[in-house]
Amino acid sequence: MAANFKLTELMVVRCAKEINDKEVVFAGVGLPLVVVSFAMATSAPSMILFTEGGSIRATAPPGLAITVDDPALFANGDATFGMLATMAALQRGEVDVAFIGGAQIDKFGNINSTGVGDIEMPEGFTYFAGSGGANDMATSGKRVLAIMPQDPKKFVEKVDYVTTPGFLDGPGAREKLGMIGGGPTVVVSTMGVYKFDEVTKEMYLAEYFPGQSVESVKANCSFDLKVAPDVKVTEAPTAEELTILRNIDPTGFYLG
């Protein structure tokens, strides 16, 4: 099925396949909100959505949620607490998937959403928004799913600021600090899908998108990217998947 699609659309469709039905998914602001609505409409109809804004719901919101406290998340929701209830569930270890974006990621899955430059020298530091809930989610979610556009400035050897813990400096670092969550398992970009080596905890390329190649992905990654021996091409989205997806974000606010 050769439907025309944007790379952002495939990123969302592919990311949704990482959510298993009936899982509790804690979604951050941005594309994760689109992915969960798509997952609820397709392969994970019984997943449960948590947000920092306090929404707890087992049904897709009636319209596109632009923010994590969007009124659409609370209309016919199951519970409308504030941040306390959903973050408490994270800290109790009840969240299966912590689902976040970010501005930079390194090979150990550490994510920066605070800024670029050296924070010790504020005159040269360019602030982004900051952690928001990403740090909490990645510390305590059972596993972390990240979604981020591919760009050599975003996939870097070392992030300028570790906002959100991946495997930090490698194997054993999370355990040593007593983190209850397992850390990152999958990263989906606009060019491919990454997983993490069980032993070294380093990110490797597991799939590349149709029209891409190992070389093109490597050209858009600033660290020496490992590649799975069985690296494969990601399935293109079907026409039906694209129709469902475009109905979730009809103006392209997030899909572009």
Binding site: M83, G124, Y127, F128, S131, G133, A134, N135, D136
Partner: peptide, 26 residues
Amino acid sequence: KAPYAIRRAVQSKEIKRYDLSNFGAT
């Protein structure tokens, strides 16, 4: 997609910003 005035004020040292996670702050 940016906090422009905050960014400038940190750079010029007009303000001091202290970061935490959302649940840290909460």
